[in-house]
Structure formats: structure tokens, C-alpha cells
Simulated scan of single mutants.
Amino acid sequence: MSRSSYDRYLTVFSPEGRLYQVEYAFKAISSAGITAVAIRGKDTAVLITQRKVEDKLLDPETITHIFQITPTIGAVVTGRIADARAQVQRTRSEAAEFRYKFGYEITPDALAKRMANINQVYTQRAGMRPLGIAMILVGIDEERGPQTFMVDPAGYFVGYKAVASGQKQTEATNFLEKKWKSVENGSLNLDRAGVIELAIECLSNVCATDFKAGEIEIGIASTSPEETGPNPGRFRQMNEAERDEWLTRVGEKD
């Protein structure tokens, strides 16, 4: 039986124990051509991703990979944007149902676990297919502080101090691992400013690009006194002026 015979069926393993349709979903994440990075610090969790406008006739403001899920939880989704929007809608629905049932907002880890369970079901039934996306969730947990989780198409999720997904995932992960040595020895401070600067530095480094404000998106959830938003601790997206200010700050630092 050839490989083409096995990859026609989602629920049939190859002799090597592989599910090709699930592997194709993982390949779709990197084929989207963008990279996303998420980092959590002492009181802040940050998401940053590229914004690519493929056609000059497109309205750039309608193109986004960062979404607000609950008042305190946000997500960046890398991969097929149609799958991403469907997943975001389901994530919001699950969070709203939790709020209605229990009377308080769902925590980032509980939401990540729920979406991972749903993704895993998508790999079990022939009438479904795994979504070609990786979702990174960040938010503020009242007990644990900033949290970062990534959910993949196979239904695996785990918490991270820093994580990347997309085309340059490997390069970004290597960059973050090297930088984390500075965090552990105390030479790099991950306060609100430190987290934002590290995220921008990571994305710029692995993409070898000096980004303009319109070429990236940044989402932040922070309880820092420096947070300028109306509701500290709530997830929000930075506007273009704020992104430009941080890009300039990082550029001058270099």
C-alpha cells in the first residue's frame, strides 16, 4: 500500500505509525509565510507577529492574526487564516460558555486544555480534518500571573515562558533559548518594557528585517503600573503609533 493510499484517510495510520493528514496540517502552519512570537514576563505577556499585505488593493486594517478571546486573554494564530477565524470563533464560544456556566472568566490554561481536546477530536473522525493552524494563547491569571500556552493541530498543549510558531519557528526558538540564559542570570529584566523589547528584537532578528509599524502586530496583557491602557490586566492590541514608538526604542537601543 503506497503513501498516497494512507494519506487519503485521516484515521488510518501508516506502517510507521504516522497520520499524514495531521502532518500536512503542521506543514500548513509554516507555509503561511509569517512568524509569531509570545513571551511572558513578571507582570506582562506579549504577542508579536508579522502582518503581510499580499495585494496593494487590500485594506491593511482588515488583515490580522491577533484576536481577543476574553477581556484578559488574547491569541495569535499562525497558518491558514480561514481555519484561524473558525478556531477563534470556537474559542470565544467555549470561553463564553464557561463564563455563563460558572460565573467567572476562564483561565488561560483551562481554555488551552479545552481547545486542545477539541483539536484532538478532529484527528479521530473521518468526517473531520485537523485545522492547519497553531494557536498561542496569552493572558493574565489572577493566581499565577501572565500565562502563555500553545495549542497545535494534533491536540497537544503546554505552557511556555517564551514560544514561537510559523515559518521561522526554529530560528526564533534558538534565539529565545540563548536570550533566556541572560534572564536566568539576572542580566536581562523581563518587566513590561523588557518583554516588549525582547519580542520585537526576536522577530526582527530571525526575519532579518527592520520592521515598520504597519508590518507587525503586537498584543499585550499586563498588570504593570506602566500599562497605559484603560484597564490594566486586560488584553489589547497596540495601535500603529504605539508600535512605531517601541520599534524606534528598540532600534536606538541596538
Rank of each mutant, 00 (worst) to 15 (best):
S5I: 07
Y6G: 11
D7H: 09
T11F: 05
F13G: 08
F13R: 04
R18H: 07
L19D: 04
Y20G: 05
Y20S: 10
Q21P: 01
E23I: 09
A25N: 10
K27L: 03
K27V: 02
A36C: 14
A36P: 10
A36E: 11
I39K: 02
G41N: 07
K42Y: 10
A45H: 04
A45E: 03
L47W: 11
I48W: 09
T49I: 05
E54I: 07
P60W: 11
I63T: 03
I66V: 14
I66A: 04
F67H: 14
Q68I: 06
I69M: 08
T72W: 00
T72V: 02
G74H: 11
T78F: 02
G79F: 13
I81H: 09
A82Y: 02
A84E: 10
A84K: 11
A86K: 15
V88P: 08
Q89M: 09
T91D: 01
R92T: 07
S93Q: 14
R99A: 11
R99K: 15
K101D: 07
D109T: 02
M115E: 11
N119F: 01
V121H: 07
Q124W: 02
Q124L: 10
G127W: 02
G127D: 12
P130G: 10
L131M: 14
L131R: 13
G132H: 02
M135L: 13
V138C: 15
V138D: 05
V138T: 15
E142D: 13
G145N: 04
G145M: 10
F149C: 03
D152L: 04
D152Y: 05
A154K: 09
G155L: 12
Y156M: 06
Y156A: 01
V158W: 04
K161T: 10
A162S: 14
V163N: 01
K168W: 07
Q169K: 13
T170H: 12
E171F: 00
A172P: 00
A172E: 07
F175E: 10
F175H: 11
F175A: 02
L176R: 06
W180I: 11
K181G: 05
S182Q: 13
V183W: 01
N185E: 15
N189H: 12
L190D: 08
A193L: 13
A199H: 12
C202H: 00
L203V: 06
S204K: 12
K212C: 02
K212I: 01
K212F: 08
A213V: 04
A213E: 14
E215G: 05
E215T: 07
G219E: 11
S222W: 02
S222Q: 06
S222V: 07
T223W: 02
T223L: 09
S224K: 09
P225H: 08
P225G: 08
E226P: 05
P230Q: 15
P232K: 03
G233P: 05
G233Q: 03
G233C: 12
F235G: 06
N239K: 12
A241E: 15
D244E: 15
E245Q: 14
W246P: 07
V250G: 07
K253D: 12
K253N: 09
K253L: 13
D254E: 14
